[in-house]
Amino acid sequence: MAKIIAVHSFRGGTGKSNTTANLAAAIALSGKRVAVIDTDIQSPGIHVLFGLEPDRLKYTLNHYLWGNCEIASAAYDVTPTEIKQANGTMFLIPSSTEISSITRILQEGYDVRLLKNGFSDLMQTLKLDYLFIDTHPGLNEETLLCIAISNMLVVILRPDRQDFQGTAVLVDLARRLKVPNLLMVVNRILQRTDLAALKQQVESTYEVAVAGLFPNSDEMMQLASSDLFYLRHPNHPLSQEMQKVAQQVMV
Rank of each mutant, 00 (worst) to 15 (best):
R232D: 00
V210T: 06
T205S: 15
V210S: 05
H236C: 06
T205P: 05
A209P: 15
P234C: 15
S204A: 14
P215C: 11
A211M: 05
P237K: 11
A224D: 10
V210F: 11
L223M: 13
G212Y: 04
E207L: 08
M221C: 14
G212T: 06
A209N: 15
S225W: 02
H236R: 11
D218H: 12
H236M: 08
R232Y: 01
M221L: 12
D218A: 14
N216D: 12
V210Y: 09
Y230F: 05
L231Y: 03
A211Q: 06
P237D: 09
T205A: 13
P234L: 15
Y230Q: 02
H233L: 08
S226K: 14
T205R: 15
Q222F: 10
H236S: 05
S217F: 11
H233Q: 07
N235D: 09
V208R: 15
D227C: 06
P215L: 12
D218G: 06
T205H: 13
H236P: 02
L223Q: 12
L228Q: 01
S226Q: 12
N216I: 03
L228H: 00
P237M: 08
N216R: 15
L228I: 01
V208H: 09
M221W: 11
Y230E: 01
Q222A: 10
S204I: 01
S225A: 08
L228E: 03
A211W: 05
H233C: 01
D227L: 08
A211S: 07
E219V: 03
R232A: 07
P215M: 10
S226T: 03
H233R: 12
A209W: 14
V210P: 07
S226N: 11
E207K: 15
Y230N: 05
F229N: 04
S226I: 01
A211I: 00
E219A: 14
L223H: 10
Y230R: 10
S226A: 09
